[in-house]
Each structure stands twice: as C-alpha cells, then as structure tokens.
C-alpha cells in the first residue's frame, strides 16, 4: 500500500486537452465545463476508437439517450421547436486527470438503430441494454440485447417523452405546494370499545 503524491488541478493541461479535441473534431462545444463532441451516426464507432486510442480516454463512464420532442406527456416541453429525434450520449474520461468528453450523435425516431459500442468498450453492454429498454433504440451487433431492469413482458419504453406517468395523470403533481391538506371526507374517526 503506497500513498499517492499530492496532485493539484492543472488548468493549463485541461485547456490543452480541450484545444486538441477541438482541433481534431469539427463540431464541438464547451459550455459549463462540459466538453461535447457532436458526430455523425456513421462515425460513431470510429470516434470512440480515436478517443480511446489517441486521447487516452480509456475510462468508459456511461452511455444514455435523450428523447427530443415538442409534444411531451411528462414534464415541460422545450421552448424552441426541436426535430423529433433521439440523441445518443456517451461519456469517456481519463483516469489521470479530470478530462472528460461527451460524445453525441442524433438518430431518427423512425429508424432508431445504431452500431453497438461493445466491441470498443465492453462496459457499454449494460448501458446499451438500458437505453434499449428505456427508449426502444436498437443497438446493432449487441451480444445480448435484452431488457435489463424491466420485466420481460413489459410493454412500452418508459423514458420516452410520450410515455405517460400514470400516477401524474390521475392526480397532477402539486408543484411547489409542500404539504397537501388532508381531504375532509377521508378522515374517519373510529369509535372503539362499547
């Protein structure tokens, strides 16, 4: 057991990393300390291979998806109009610094399929299974694309914006009201004894 030497945050290293990413990829953004690369669906696998090999981003953090739609059944809709689509996000990072990259690609809802990342990062397996059951995205060449959390006979993809939260349909979420008043007729005082 040895103890690590003290490491301090190195801002210039981080800037250098961001610059190198931005020079290698065309469509990048850096907002709120989050570096995001937007790539085309065709270069999805290659991008990860490059990031893993050339940028030392060997730590597979997570993979997920976003359902972009203006017609939503849960939550608030985006204020500006968006094209209905799925955005696939993956997050890779390094294990010797705080450098982290979010890769993003957009696929259409009608043809919701994308090449699986399992061959590049074996850890993508469970994340892709989760995205498959939650959004209905088909990951091609995935070794075991079955439901991860949900029961086998479950119908629907819960994280779609068109999927209703039934409990909220029956009774709207009270919003910023902290405590609801007890409905009058539900208070029944039972008399005991006698």
């Amino acid at each position: 057991m040895k103890s690590g030497e003290k490491k301090t945050l190195n801002q210039s290293d981080q800037n250098e990393f961001i610059n190198s990413i931005q020079s290698s990829f065309k469509n990048t953004s850096y907002n709120f300390d989050t570096l995001k690369i937007n790539v085309d669906i065709s270069s999805w696998i290659d991008t990860h291979k490059i990031l893993k090999k050339d940028f030392n981003l060997s730590f597979f953090n997570w993979l997920s998806a976003v359902d972009w739609d203006n017609e939503v059944k849960t939550g608030d809709a985006p204020k500006e109009p968006v094209t209905p689509s799925f955005e696939i996000l993956s997050c890779l990072s390094q294990t010797n610094s705080n450098n982290l990259v979010i890769s993003s690609t957009v696929i259409s809802k009608e043809n919701a399929e994308i090449e699986s990342l399992v061959d590049v990062f074996a850890g993508a397996n469970w994340h892709e299974r989760e995205a498959y059951e939650m959004f209905g995205i088909n990951f091609l060449n995935h070794p075991n694309l079955t439901k991860l959390y949900l029961p086998d006979d479950y119908e629907g993809n819960p994280l779609l914006k068109s999927f209703e939260l039934i409990s909220r349909e029956v009774k709207p979420w009270p919003g910023d009201v902290d405590v609801e008043g007890m409905p009058e007729d539900s208070i029944v005082v039972e008399e005991k004894g006698s």
């Binding site: 997570w62 976003v66 359902d67 608030d76 809709a77 985006p78 204020k79 996000l89 997050c91």
Partner: peptide
Amino acid sequence: GYYIISEGGLGPYR
C-alpha cells in the same frame, strides 16, 4: 455524476 439537460423550465428536461 448527473448529466443535466435544462430547457429553461422549472425541472430538468432530462
């Protein structure tokens, strides 16, 4: 970690 996607509403979009 939390990846927050905000669309300017009261709650996160995703």
